[in-house]
C-alpha cells in the first residue's frame, strides 16, 4: 500500500454520525412516521458502513471479466442487497401499523396515544 490513506477511517465515522442522527430522530420525536423515517436513515447508514468495508481500492464491481485480478468484496453486497428489500417490506408493515393506530386513536403522536390509553 502506498502512503495515500484518504479517506482512511472517515467513511466509517460519517456513517456512524448518520446512524446517530437516525437514532436521535427515533428517540426525540413523538410522531410515528418521523420515527419510521429515522429508522430508515439509520438503516441506510448501516448499509453504507457495510459497503464501505467491502470496497477494495482499485477493484471494480465484482462482475468477473478477463484481465482484472482485483475486485471489490462481493459478500457485503449480497448481505445488503437482501437487507434493503427486507427493509422496505418491514417498513411497509410498520406503516400499516401506523395507519391502524391512527384509525384507532385519531393521532400518530406517541404521547397523545399514551394519554388516551391512560384516560381509558
Amino acid at each position: 500500500m502506498s502512503a495515500y490513506a484518504f479517506p482512511g477511517l472517515a467513511n466509517y465515522w460519517i456513517a456512524i454520525v448518520l446512524m446517530m442522527i437516525g437514532l436521535y430522530v427515533v428517540m426525540a420525536h413523538e410522531n410515528l412516521i418521523k420515527k419510521i423515517v429515522g429508522l430508515n436513515i439509520f438503516q441506510v447508514s448501516v448499509f453504507v458502513l457495510y459497503i464501505s468495508m467491502g470496497k477494495v481500492k482499485g477493484g471494480p464491481a465484482p462482475i468477473l471479466a478477463d484481465n482484472i485480478t482485483i475486485y471489490s468484496n462481493p459478500l457485503p453486497h449480497v448481505l445488503i442487497l437482501t437487507a434493503i428489500v427486507v427493509g422496505v417490506a418491514t417498513t411497509a408493515l410498520g406503516l400499516a401499523l401506523i395507519v391502524r393506530v391512527n384509525e384507532q386513536y385519531g393521532s400518530i403522536e406517541d404521547d397523545d396515544i399514551r394519554d388516551l390509553e391512560n384516560a381509558e
Binding site: V88, A89, A96, V99, N102, E103, Y105, G106, S107, L116
Partner: peptide
C-alpha cells in the same frame, strides 16, 4: 414474490379510506 409483495402492499395502502380523526 417481490413483485407481488410490492403490488399487494401498494394496493393495501391505496385502497384504504382516510378516517376523520375522532373528537375527544
Amino acid at each position: 414474490t417481490v413483485f407481488a409483495a410490492m403490488v399487494t402492499i401498494f394496493c393495501a395502502f391505496a385502497g384504504r379510506d382516510r378516517v376523520t380523526p375522532r373528537k375527544n
